[in-house]
């Protein structure tokens, strides 16, 4: 069984450690916030200028001046701080943020990522993604392993314009958890419950490295 978006988010949440400052991108990464264990202290950074992002407001309590990087209305928490866009990217560039979680259209076996442009079709812009991937110490990508046509998005080389080079270290998809090795290659670490290694192999266009028994993901 391949994972739902919520399950991908739940699996990624296990990578978050006590004391982390975390930046969550738009899409599946935003869902990760719902699964952070309550017994650890984590501060969420929103690159429009907020540390300590709280949950969505209750109906009637929305504040147009308080949004996240996805332009959603949010709340602050005790201990939150607000700053301008330059300082926000200053702390990102200076590697004060421990973990960045973002989506991708393609990732290559050497850790390149493409997630901002489809030439001739979609021109939305990179937002903060290029700054984040160029500076983050630790990046986890949440993405679909294959597109709707069943074609792999884990490639030997990206076909779309790049967002960053050699920067991705870990990927969680609907099928698997994979590490991108420093010397290149997708190392299969875990598989989704009921998904076979063979199926993951078929779904991975880039070089897949399989060593020993590959355990199923554990969500506890």
């Amino acid at each position: 069984m391949s994972l739902s978006k919520e399950e991908i988010a739940k699996r990624i949440a296990k990578e978050i450690k006590d004391g982390y400052y975390v930046n969550l991108g738009i899409g599946i990464p935003t869902l990760v916030a719902n699964y952070i264990p309550e017994d650890i202290n984590v501060v969420l950074q929103s690159e429009n200028g907020l540390l300590g992002m709280g949950p969505f407001p209750f109906e009637g309590e929305e504040d147009a001046d308080l949004i996240n990087a996805g332009k959603q209305t949010i709340t602050t928490l005790p201990g939150s701080s607000i700053f301008d866009s330059a300082m926000s990217f200053g702390m990102i560039r200076a590697q004060k943020v421990d973990l960045t979680i973002l989506g991708a259209m393609e990732v290559s076996e050497n850790g390149d990522i493409a997630n901002w442009k489809i030439p001739g079709k979609m021109v939305k812009g990179m937002g903060g993604a290029m700054d984040l991937v160029a500076s983050a110490k630790n990046i986890i990508v949440a993405m679909q392993h294959v597109n709707k046509a069943g074609e792999s998005k884990l490639l030997s080389a990206c076909t779309l314009p790049l967002t960053g080079v050699k920067c991705i270290k870990k990927i969680v998809t609907e099928l698997a958890v994979l590490n991108v090795l420093p010397e290149g290659g997708f190392q299969l670490v875990e598989r989704a419950p009921g998904v076979s290694v063979e199926f993951i192999q078929q779904s991975t266009a880039g070089r897949l490295i399989i060593e020993g028994e590959i355990p199923e993901m554990n969500f506890d």
Partner: peptide, 27 residues
């Protein structure tokens, strides 16, 4: 890149002609 945009503003306001940033290298 968004950080480049913000920091190019900052540089103008701080009287610095340019900045160095890793954002966009290789793209």
């Amino acid at each position: 890149p968004q950080g480049t945009l913000a920091t190019r503003c900052l540089a103008a306001g701080y009287g610095m002609p340019a900045i160095f940033t890793p954002a966009g290298v290789g793209t």
